[in-house]
């Protein structure tokens, strides 16, 4: 591993200044479960790692039924699923946080890092998309907000400009009769990368018999995680039924444009999009009905 500098930033401004100065030779470091591995394996060469996990804004974790969730980009996964209130409000996000890597990884890995790594297979991105998460980005020109589904632009590529870094997420408070669900397909039970991932959120009417709205997010079926917009829209106003769910799953299948690699084939991934979307929707519906 080539030597590089390490600076723990104390404030957002300090981090922005350091990142802006070094350009693409610098990267923000949070849990490090992707970045350190990449640098050690020589897949990425850096002059500087700016540790952002000492900055108060990246460590915030606050939830209220009125304002929703404010989640710092450096908050490790386990803090999310260990919080009963947050897990109950955003079960789809907790589903993902619980399955990233393995138990040890979850003590370190952050949702912010998972998003910034911009893997098409990232587990927390479909839940962020279906929960309408907004990414708060700090940069030389102040802060800006970007919806989660617009954050990734390609494998390993994001909207972050020179000097910018992800500070936190704002996730709206859950609506009445709503819930969410995330699942992925892996051949193993842990320590694996999704062959396909699917997240869903649903809002049902007061009788819990019709959809008010729904959102479907997909992983590992395109260069970036996808928001399945048409499939999601198809459910609004429809009666909760196998037909409606199956039709949405079928629609989700149509936007998948995966590749074949050592983790899975195109045919398998396209097939799994439908299966997993159906299971994610049914999982979310089941949670609403149970609540």
């Amino acid at each position: 591993m080539r030597a590089f500098d390490y600076i723990p930033a104390k404030t957002v401004d300090e981090a922005v200044a350091l990142l802006a100065e070094k350009g693409d030779q610098a990267k923000p470091l949070s849990g490090g479960t992707d970045l350190i591995v990449m640098v050690r394996e020589g897949r990425r060469q850096l002059d500087l790692m700016v540790d952002v996990k000492d900055i108060p804004e990246t460590n915030v974790l606050s939830y209220s039924q009125e304002t929703g969730l404010h989640l710092g980009a450096a908050v490790p996964c386990y803090q999310i699923y260990a919080d009963d209130e947050i897990s109950a409000a955003y079960p789809g996000l907790a589903d993902a946080a619980k399955i990233i890597g393995g138990t040890a990884i979850q003590g370190r890995a952050s949702v912010g890092g998972n998003l910034c790594n911009a893997s098409p297979a990232a587990d927390t991105i479909p839940p962020l998309i279906v929960l309408e998460a907004v990414c708060v980005i700090a940069g030389p020109n102040g802060t800006r907000d970007v919806p989660a589904e617009q954050f990734c632009t390609g494998p390993g590529q994001t909207v972050l400009e020179n000097g910018e870094f992800l500070v936190s997420f704002k996730i709206p408070a859950p609506k009445n009769n709503s819930s969410s669900y995330y699942l992925r397909f892996i051949p193993r039970n842990e320590m694996d990368i999704a062959v396909v991932g699917a997240g869903a959120s649903v809002v049902l009417d007061t009788e819990k018999t019709s959809f008010v709205s729904a959102r479907i997010g997909l992983a590992a079926v395109a260069p970036t995680p996808l928001f399945a917009e048409e499939a999601s829209a198809s459910l609004a106003g429809r009666e909760v039924s196998d037909e409606a769910v199956n039709a949405a799953a079928e629609a989700a299948r149509h936007i998948a444009r995966p590749i074949s690699d050592m983790r899975g084939t195109i045919e398998q991934r396209v097939h799994l999009v439908e299966v997993l979307t159906r299971r994610a929707l049914n999982g979310a519906i089941h949670r609403v009905k149970e609540s």
């Binding site: 393995g102 051949p187 193993r188 039970n189 842990e190 320590m191 694996d192 990368i193 690699d261 050592m262 983790r263």
Partner: peptide, 16 residues
């Protein structure tokens, strides 16, 4: 070899 590591060369973990 396209899977020269323990992420993509799948051996079972204790959870499997």
């Amino acid at each position: 070899n396209v899977n020269p590591g323990l992420v993509d060369y799948r051996v079972p973990t204790s959870a499997d």
